[in-house]
C-alpha cells in the first residue's frame, strides 16, 4: 500500500470539496473494495476522506411514497430493513446474494455501486489493462475471458460490473443523489449512472471528480413478484456468471435486468415488452447485437434459462 494522509470530513459538502480540490484524494466508506485494490497498488490514493460519520446512514420514507437510502447504509441493514423486505424484496435478495455476511456488514450502498470490476487481468498488475492503465491494451480479449461481458463491450475492454445490488437498483428505477465539489446537488437516474467502456474503460460512471453520493432513492413500490437468480461457480460467496433481477406481474408484464453480462447492469426496456411471450423472446431482444467470445457464449444460453426459471417461479 502507498502511504496516505487520512481525515474525517465534517459534512457531505465538505467531503466533496476536499476530494474535489486535493490531488490524489478519495472517499473511503466500508473500504472493502478500495483497501483490497490499494493493497495491490491498483488504487494509489494519497489522501483518504472518511465519509462514515456524516449521518448518511439512515433509510427514510419519501413524500412520494418511496424510500431514501443513505449512501452509507450498510448492505446488511438495507437487506434487513422491513420496508425493503416487504416492498422491494428484489433488493434484499440481490444484496444477500452478494459477498459474505462479514463483508455486507461493512459494505455501503454507494461503495457497492462504485465497486470495480473483478476482471482477473485488471487485478494482475503484470498484464496490460486499459481500465487500470489507459492505453496499455486489454489482456482479457485474447486471454481467459469466460467471465467477461457478452454485450456492450468495446475493443478496449470487455469487463463486467460485478455488483448484485446494482442489478436490483436498475430494475427498481433507483435515482442516485449527489453533492458536487462546488456544493451543487443533483439526481442521476440509475440508467444514466454506469457507463459502457467505449474508448475510456477507466471511466465507469457519470460522477464528476469529488462528487459524493449522498443517497439512493427508490420510487414507490410497484408490487409484483420479486426474484433474483444468481448463477455462479459455487453455491455461495462467488461473483455471478449471470444473474437475473426480475419483477413480474400477474398479467405477464414485468421488468428484468441482467448481471454478469455487461459493463453496467443490463436492462433493455424494449425486451420487457416481450416478457409475456416468454424468456426466449425477451432475451433475444435484450441481447440483440451481443458479441460473446468463444469462452463465454454460454452466458447467452444461461441468461435465457435463468429468466425462464424466474418466469416459471413467478407463475407457480
Amino acid at each position: 500500500m502507498k502511504a496516505f494522509t487520512y481525515e474525517r470530513a465534517g459534512s457531505p459538502a465538505e467531503a466533496a470539496a476536499i476530494v474535489g480540490r486535493t490531488q490524489g484524494a478519495r472517499f473511503i466508506a466500508g473500504g472493502t473494495n478500495l483497501l483490497d485494490l490499494m493493497k495491490l497498488q491498483i488504487e494509489t490514493p494519497t489522501h483518504l476522506v472518511d465519509v462514515n460519520h456524516l449521518g448518511l446512514d439512515r433509510i427514510e420514507a419519501t413524500p412520494e411514497g418511496g424510500l431514501r437510502i443513505g449512501a452509507l447504509v450498510r448492505n446488511t441493514d438495507l437487506a434487513a430493513d422491513k420496508r425493503v423486505r416487504k416492498d422491494y424484496a428484489l433488493l434484499s435478495r440481490a444484496l444477500v446474494a452478494g459477498a459474505s455476511g462479514q463483508l455486507r456488514n461493512k459494505a455501503t450502498t454507494a461503495g457497492n455501486l462504485l465497486q470495480r470490476t473483478r476482471c482477473p487481468y485488471f487485478y494482475d498488475t503484470n498484464q496490460p489493462c486499459n481500465k487500470r492503465k489507459p492505453g496499455s491494451g486489454c489482456a482479457a480479449i485474447g486471454g481467459i475471458n469466460r467471465s467477461m461481458a457478452v454485450i456492450g463491450a468495446s475493443d478496449a475492454c470487455i469487463a463486467t460490473h460485478p455488483s448484485d445490488m446494482a442489478i436490483a437498483m436498475r430494475a427498481l428505477d433507483a435515482v442516485v443523489e449527489t453533492v458536487r465539489a462546488d456544493g451543487a446537488t443533483r439526481a442521476i437516474p440509475i440508467a444514466e449512472f454506469h457507463t459502457l467502456p467505449g474508448d475510456t474503460p477507466n471511466v465507469e460512471n457519470t460522477l464528476a471528480a469529488g462528487e459524493l453520493i449522498t443517497a439512493v432513492t427508490l420510487p414507490k413500490p410497484i408490487g409484483g413478484t420479486h426474484i433474483y437468480h444468481k448463477v455462479r461457480d459455487r453455491a455461495s460467496y462467488a461473483f455471478a456468471l449471470v444473474s437475473v433481477g426480475a419483477i413480474l406481474q400477474k398479467d405477464g408484464s414485468g421488468r428484468v435486468a441482467f448481471g454478469g453480462v455487461a459493463h453496467k447492469p443490463w436492462r433493455v426496456e424494449a425486451a420487457e415488452a416481450a416478457l409475456a411471450q416468454g424468456a426466449k423472446a425477451a432475451t433475444a431482444l435484450a441481447f440483440a447485437g451481443a458479441k460473446p467470445t468463444e469462452q463465454n457464449k454460454f452466458k447467452l444460453v444461461l441468461a435465457e434459462r435463468t429468466l425462464a426459471a424466474a418466469i416459471a417461479e413467478a407463475r407457480a
Binding site: 487520512y6 473511503i28 473500504g31 472493502t32 483497501l35 483490497d36 493493497k39 483518504l48 472518511d50 462514515n52 446488511t76 459474505s100 455476511g101 462479514q102 463483508l103 456488514n105 461493512k106
Partner: peptide
Amino acid sequence: CDHGQCGACTVIVDGRRINSCLSLAVM
C-alpha cells in the same frame, strides 16, 4: 488471504462481525 476472501481475520466490532484485514485501524 489479507483480501477479505477467507474469513480467518473475522472479529466482532460493535457487535458485528467484519473482516479485520479490509478495515483501517484509524477508522
